Amino acid sequence: MFQKVLIAEDTDYMSSGIKIALESFQIPQIEYAQYCDEAYLKLKKAWLSNEPFDLLISDLSFVDNYSPQQLTTGEELIKKAKELQPDLKTIVFSIEDKPYRIQHLCKELLVNAYVWKSIHGQKELKRAINSVYGNDFFITPKLAHTLRTIETFEITEYDVSLLKHLANGMDQRDISKDFKEKNMKPSSISSVEKRLKILKENFNANNPTQLIAITKDFGLI
């Protein structure tokens, strides 16, 4: 099992849920940092001392510190940590569930596990630690669909027009009317409603506003 673990979490480590998840593993050395700069300094010091950490468990969002921080998010910390120590195992433990952000962390920053802070968070964190130690990837099952790349779901010009109209404040009836005038098919209200439902499901959006925010981040509109 891991021998030296660093926790980057701005809430009290004792009450964060991570402590409970780690207790059963009997890890000899566990250190804690409330800010990303502090966490990176600990990682760098350990690396330079030839006593590197085996695992970094990090949140993504951190409260503002009274002094300016160079690293302000878990993403920035993980990126710098990987540059310093490429073989460092990393687990994200966060409430963030936006698909584009999870994809970036798992596919670009190559984190070893992504655990969603939820009612099952502690249990899943334990599963993640076991998986990562065994060189396997882990993601909270309810978020697994977010790793489906955007290319696997074909976004058409119809979809882009639909999203743009939605972003401009048009409701489904108005969108249907505009599509009929432009001879865009399908144009019925039920068809527009059905396609919007599929888009929301694909992008894991709970409502039209969130769908617009996510697709803007993807650069679709």
Results as ranks from 00 to 15, higher is better:
Leu77Met: 04
Lys42Ala: 04
Pro86His: 08
Lys89Pro: 02
Leu77Tyr: 10
Lys82Val: 03
Val92Thr: 03
Leu56Ile: 03
Gln85Lys: 05
Asn65Tyr: 15
Leu88Val: 04
Gln69His: 10
Ser118Asn: 10
Phe93Pro: 09
Trp116Leu: 15
Asn112Val: 02
Tyr40Cys: 02
Asn130Gln: 14
Leu43Cys: 08
Lys45Ala: 09
Tyr114Gly: 02
Leu84Gly: 02
Ser58His: 10
Lys98Asn: 09
Thr72Asp: 00
Gly74Pro: 04
Ile129Cys: 05
Lys44Phe: 05
Ser118Phe: 14
Val115Pro: 08
Leu71Asn: 07
Asn65Trp: 11
Leu60Lys: 03
Glu75Thr: 07
Gly74Cys: 06
Asp59Glu: 14
Lys45Ile: 01
Tyr40Ser: 01
Tyr40Trp: 11
Leu60Phe: 12
Leu125Glu: 07
Ala113His: 06
Tyr100Asp: 10
Arg127Pro: 07
Ala46Gly: 03
Asn112Lys: 01
Glu96Pro: 12
Arg127Trp: 15
Gln122Gly: 12
Leu109Trp: 06
Val63Asp: 07
Lys45Met: 10
Leu77Asn: 07
Ile102Trp: 11
Glu51Val: 02
Glu96Asn: 15
Leu43Thr: 01
Thr73Arg: 06
Pro52Cys: 01
Pro68Arg: 09
Leu48His: 13
Val63Asn: 13
Pro99His: 09
Ile78Gly: 01
Tyr66Ile: 13
Val92Asp: 00
Leu77His: 07
Thr90Met: 06
Arg101Met: 10
Leu48Gln: 12
Pro99Thr: 04
Lys80Gly: 00
Leu105Ser: 00
Ile119Trp: 15
Glu83Ala: 09
Asp87Val: 01
Tyr114Ile: 08
Lys98Ile: 13
Thr90Tyr: 04
Glu124Gly: 07
Gln122Tyr: 14
Asn50Phe: 14
Pro68Gln: 11
Val63Glu: 00
Leu71Glu: 05
Ile129Trp: 03
Ser67Ala: 11
Glu75Leu: 10
Trp116Thr: 00
Ser58Met: 10
Leu88Asp: 00
Asp64His: 15
Phe62Val: 08
Leu77Val: 07
His104Asp: 06
Cys106Ser: 02
Glu96Ser: 09
Leu105Arg: 01
Lys42Trp: 13
Pro52Val: 09
Lys79Val: 03
Phe93His: 13
Tyr114Ser: 08
Leu41Ser: 01
Val115Gly: 10
Leu71Thr: 08
Lys98Pro: 04
Leu125Asn: 06
Ser118Leu: 10
Asn130His: 13
Leu110Tyr: 15
Tyr114Glu: 00
Asn112Pro: 02
Leu84Ser: 03
Asn112Trp: 02
Pro86Leu: 11
Lys89Asp: 09
Leu56Glu: 01
Leu84Glu: 04
Asp54Cys: 05
Lys107Asn: 09
Leu71Val: 04
Gln69Tyr: 06
Leu41Tyr: 13
Tyr66Gly: 00
Lys117Met: 11
Phe53Gln: 04
Lys126Leu: 05
Glu51Arg: 15
